[in-house]
Design a protein around this nucleic acid. Sequence first.
DNA 1: CGGCGTATCAGT
DNA 2: CTGATACGCCGG
Length: 725
Amino acid sequence: MIVEVALPVPMRGGFDYLLPEDHAQPTPGARVRVPFGSRQLVGVITAIKQNSDQPTDKLRRITALLDHKPVLSALMLDWLNWASRYYQHPVGDVISTALPARLRKGEPATSQQSFWRLTETGQALNSDSLKRAPQQQAIIERLRAGRCEDKILKQEFSAAIIRAVKEKQLIEATDDAYIPDTDWPARIKISGQLNANLEQSLAITAINNQAQGFHSFLLEGVTGSGKTEVYLQCIAPLLQQGKQILILVPEIGLTPQTVARFEQRFGIDVAVLHSGLTDKERLTVWQQAGLGETGIIIGTRSAIFTPLANPGMIIVDEEHDGSYKQQDGWRYHARDLAVVRARLENIPLILGSATPSLETLNNALTGKYQHLSLKQRAGGAKAVQHQVLDIKGQALDYGLAKGMQQRIRLHLQQGHQVMLFINRRGFAPALICHQCGHVEECHRCERSFTLHRQLNKLQCHHCGDAKIVPSRCAACGHPDLQPVGMGTEQLEHGIQRLFPQYTAMRIDSDSARGKQKLHGLLDEINQGNSQLLIGTQILAKGHHFPRVSLVVILDVDSALFSADYRAAEHLAQLITQVAGRAGRAQIQGELWLQTHNPGHPLLQDLLNNGYQHFARLALKERQFAALPPYSYQALFRSEAVNGNLAYDFLEQVKACLRQTDISLIGPLPALMEKRQGRYRMQLLLQSDKRTGIQQWLSNMMTRIEKLPLANKVRWSLDMDPMDFT
DNA sequence: CGGCGTATCAGT
DNA sequence: CTGATACGCCGG
């Protein structure tokens, strides 16, 4: 008999092994240890077959079968196989990403603990027949509540007592199969007031009506409209039926308060999965969920791989959040995997957001997802006032216009905090005329050119067209052409000089590395120790800053004219999230945007009509430009110390795909052209049919992997790329 | 990916 | 000739 095994090596396809005759019947999904070259690897059986397409004398035999019961169900295997094909990523690597590290290393999958339980005699025992042996009686009572782990029982009672009760055959050790503790549905006790306004009730009813079988919902609820309450009330009946709920949250949104809210409502423990867990803790959560011992599992991106014995629903909160996309190795999108998993598990899925991604919104508008809206804001939070400051021709100090400096000073003098947003650095920007705000555009695509200083060229990242950097503005003839956002990079250094009597603090993913550290910084902010807060997106995600009365987005143009067509969407999400949070309660909040183009249609639409309206307009633009979600993309990235190698490799990839109906844009320099001394290039594949890209790639990947340059450069394929840095 | 064989080179 | 490092190839 032959087994096909997925191994954690970057090679496509499974590997066939012989199974020794005397072995127990293996199941797909069980792990094996196998010889691979000169080493031993742990892999997962993906198929059992009678013959191999390899010559039999090449086959080696497995070293050991590690599991009696599969660690991955047939459904999970199907799902991961699908994912491997969809992302064109080696199946062994996909499976290995989906398993906890401990299982990857071949450690036992089932609990090794042994338990004590009552024998039948013990169960039948009259409660006062052991009156003269109170310790023994205590053990019996202890076990009447349920089995107890050997280790724990030995902590509570002396070994002699345990031995005595065992001799009487009242208790017995069970080291055979682990008996899952699945009593939690009986322990559910719903508490807290179940208030729901009309909108919330409508949403809850709509979801409850479709709670059997696969069905997708977009729950679009403005900040503070009570999405969580909808989740809580929707999952209640499912939990009571003993069905498990898997909830995904963004990396930064997983706070103890979130978890506490679920625990308080239902009175049962919530399992939490995040990057701070040890391998052991992660394995425990994984096992317990797989055995059906946990009702609610909340986790970040990788929690989507948690097995569920009795799945009831998947919720992806803040579905637009970028942290759901893995940015190295296997570049999966947890939200997209969730959709497919829910379909396979045949359970409902809720995608929740105040600012849904355009992909999701499009699915809702076309009826693929049921669209539920919460527009009413709970509580008496004052709406934030938006203001746009035109900075055309204005002198800027470190990116701040004079008028803005005065505004900031005013707020600081009132004892409030001011938050300044700058974009991430190092991106290739557009070229803007500081006098009239005109941006050089590609005539074919009507999209802004991107400045590549190293080449002294403007390049269109939509069609690949390029031209030499002009010396004068094409609209007004002024020579004051500047890269968008110029000066903002110096803000951090300059701000202290502009406002010497106040303290400035910078918060970005570097200074806030590690969850603990970020929460520490946030606490510090809310104590008011710093008055000026400088940060990037990270500041906007799900945190409240009651002392902040003024929020400034310095560099709106870099988002409006970015080569990354998602930048405007992300800016709109940022503005909306910030507006929903700054200066809640007593203080009237103000949001100021600096731009050369106050009349930009997307910006105007966002400010006048809100995110919902903006998103629909942005979708029209995407449709006009044939961009996602109206087309499908895949991105080859390559990097090498020698930039020519990176370029040549992508040229060869391009040649492989030339005979197809996929449009190929590039090779172009990445928006961050150079990183850690390596030149970075990209080749964008785009098609109006998803299957087109899929099929051509599955035919071509083996050939691409064999290209002579393929192991001279570092390269990867990114399906549905979200980030063009 | 990671191990192993072969090529290459400075140093004896 | 020897040991150290670099690179390419292979794995079922």
